[in-house]
Amino acid sequence: MHNLCSATQNVAAMPKKLWQPKVETEEHPLLTVNGVSKYYGDRAGCLHVSFDLYPGEIVGIVGESGSGKSTLLNCISGRLSPTYGSVNYQQENGDLCNVHEAPEHLRRMLMRTEWGYVHQHPRDGLRNNVSAGANIGERLMGVGMRHYGNIRSKATDWLERVEISKNRMDDLPRTFSGGMQQRLQIARNLVSNPRLIFMDEPTGGLDVSVQARLLDLLRELVAEMGLAVVIVTHDLAVARILAHRLMVMRGGHVVESGLTDQVLDDPHHEYTQLLVSSILQV
C-alpha cells in the first residue's frame, strides 16, 4: 500500500489531496512543524506555527515584510532555533530526525545533501571566489565524489538544465547577470538530488521577464524531480504560479491557510482580502 502510494504520487506529482484528508494516505509527511514560536527578546518573530509538508508538495508563505516569514523559514530550515516547538524531518533512509535536537553533524549533512536553500541574493548562496562549475560541483565533492571528469560532466548537465551556456562554466559568478546567478544557485542546490528545498524570495531582485523565465524553470524542475518546497514570497503572483498551498502570515501569526487558489480566489481573513485586493492590475 505504501509503495503504491508513493509510486502514484511520483508519477503524477499532483499533490491535490495530499495534505487535506490526511487519513486517506499512508504517506508520511516529509516535514512536520509543530507549534513553532520564535522570540527575539520579548518580541515575537513567529507564533504557534504548525503544518505538515508532504513529499512533492509546494507550500508558499506570504505576508508583508516584518510578518515573520523569514523567521519561520529560518526556524524550519534549522538555521535558527525556535524558542518553542519542534520540527521533524523524515530522512531518506526512513529515520525521523528532530531538526533542532539532532546532532550538528547530521543537520549539516542534511543541509548539503537532502536539503537545499535558495537565498534571495544569489551572492549569499554561492561561493563567489570559485567558478560556476566548482559551485555546482561542491556538493558532489562534499559527498565524496573524487573523479574530476565526472564532476565536470555533471556540472555541464546542470548548467544546461538551468539554461546557462556551458562555455560560461569556468567563469566566476560575479561575471553573471542577476538572473543567471540565481539560476546557478538553483543548480548548485539541486545537483545533489535533494528532497526538500527552502526558498527565500527567489525572484526578489529580478525584473519581470527574468522572473517569469525563472518561475517557469523552477516549476519544471520541481515537478520533474518531485521536490517538496517551502517558498517565502511577498509576491502573490509567484505564489499563485508555484505553490500548491498557501499560508498567509501577519504579525507572526498564520492568519489563513489553504489551497492556493482557494485562498487567493476566496480570501476569508480581512488581511488576506486586503492583500489580494492590493495586487496591481495593468
Binding site: 561561493r127 570559485v130 566548482a134 565533492m141 565524496g144
Partner: peptide, 11 residues
C-alpha cells in the same frame, strides 16, 4: 566536512 578542499583543486 572536507569537500571544499577538492573545490580548490577542481578550480
Amino acid at each position: 566536512e572536507y569537500g571544499v578542499m577538492h573545490v580548490k583543486l577542481y578550480e
